[in-house]
Computed example of a mutant assay.
Amino acid sequence: MLLNPTITKPQTIGFHYVDRFNVSIRLEGIGWEKAESASYRWNGLSRGQEGAAIFQYTLSGRGELRIGEKIHSLPKHHAFMCKVPGDHEYYLPEGETHWEYFFVTIHGEDALRHWSALEGKIGPVFELPPKSAPLGILSELYADIVQAPLADQYDIAASLYRFILEMHRYADASSLVRTGDIPEPLLHAISLIRQRYREDLSLDELAKASGLTKYHFCRLFQKKLGIKPMQYINKVRIERAVWLLRYTDLKIAQVGEACGFTHASYFIKTFRGIIGSTPGDYRSLPKHPDFDQLKVEI
């Protein structure tokens, strides 16, 4: 987390949009706070908000989140995402002296849709490294707002979308293959692929991450997953490309580059070989509201 007390001080900033429909995603509030009393308690069914998406990250101390009848602990470096209204409540638990946290509250149908998709990937509560990209984006946004109270609403919206995209990247990297008995060495390689799929990964790098020789790594990978390591890299890249084509306005070449394809022609060829259509043709198809992401089986 890049919050710097010499540059920014703990405070909360709220926003009011005169034209609520001018931008598709709106920041209602952002803040760095510390709860030190049991009176700190927020209930998702009685807080008087509609259509809000909340992200909250523990900086120190510990909080708790109740969802239905289940209680989740929120120690340092853990975050939660929830939507309002909802059957949840977060608070400073009995016996804890404080809960220091950073939060954002966002409005807009886009935010709610992405919150649902992210919860499906990593759940409502998860650990997030303090130097992760999503937190870096939010801390920069917080510093910009504190230091420049007249921050442009479109710049704010762009930062929120960057945060959401990085959360999807983090969630995808955390969602390792769970089907079958995947040996630990392969899980290390899969994790590397999902974190660095945009790079030109070699078999030598993947084998090193697994701790196996290149021969045994390739043999075990294909035996357990049914495809070759380089095919798996393309699978991850194309799954990401499908998401970007559906939910962003990036040009085809930019989508390919964002997914690790240095040449647009090779991206188009690979995409067509796996999906059965070119990226442009796929983008022009009617939307598929029945899924938030497409998993490719090769």
Rank of each mutant, 00 (worst) to 15 (best):
M1H: 14
N4M: 10
I7S: 09
T8Y: 00
T12G: 10
T12M: 07
T12H: 11
I13H: 10
H16L: 08
R20H: 05
E28S: 13
G31D: 06
K34S: 07
A35P: 02
G44D: 00
L45W: 01
L45G: 02
L45D: 03
S46P: 01
Q49D: 11
A53V: 10
T58N: 12
T58Y: 04
G61A: 11
E64W: 08
L65N: 10
I67K: 13
E69R: 15
E69Q: 12
K70H: 14
I71E: 08
S73E: 13
V84W: 01
D87R: 14
D87L: 13
E94T: 14
T97C: 01
H98Y: 04
E100T: 15
Y101C: 13
Y101P: 01
E109G: 12
A111Y: 08
L112P: 00
H114N: 15
W115E: 11
W115F: 15
W115G: 13
L118Y: 02
L118C: 06
I122S: 02
G123Q: 04
P130E: 15
S132F: 09
S132W: 10
I137C: 01
A143R: 12
A143V: 01
A148K: 13
D152G: 03
Q153M: 05
D155G: 00
A158T: 01
F163R: 04
E166F: 01
M167K: 11
M167E: 04
M167R: 14
Y170Q: 09
S174I: 13
S175F: 00
L176R: 09
V177F: 06
T179M: 13
P185L: 10
I190E: 11
I190L: 14
I193Y: 03
R198H: 04
D200R: 14
D200T: 14
D200N: 13
L201W: 03
L203I: 12
L203V: 09
A207Q: 01
A207K: 06
T213N: 08
F221K: 12
Q222L: 04
G226R: 15
N234W: 05
A241L: 04
W243A: 02
R246E: 12
R246H: 06
T248W: 15
T248I: 14
C259W: 05
C259G: 02
H263C: 06
Y266L: 06
I268P: 02
F271P: 06
G276P: 10
T278E: 09
Y282W: 14
L285T: 13
K287D: 12
F291A: 06
D292S: 15
Q293C: 12
L294R: 15
V296N: 05
E297P: 02
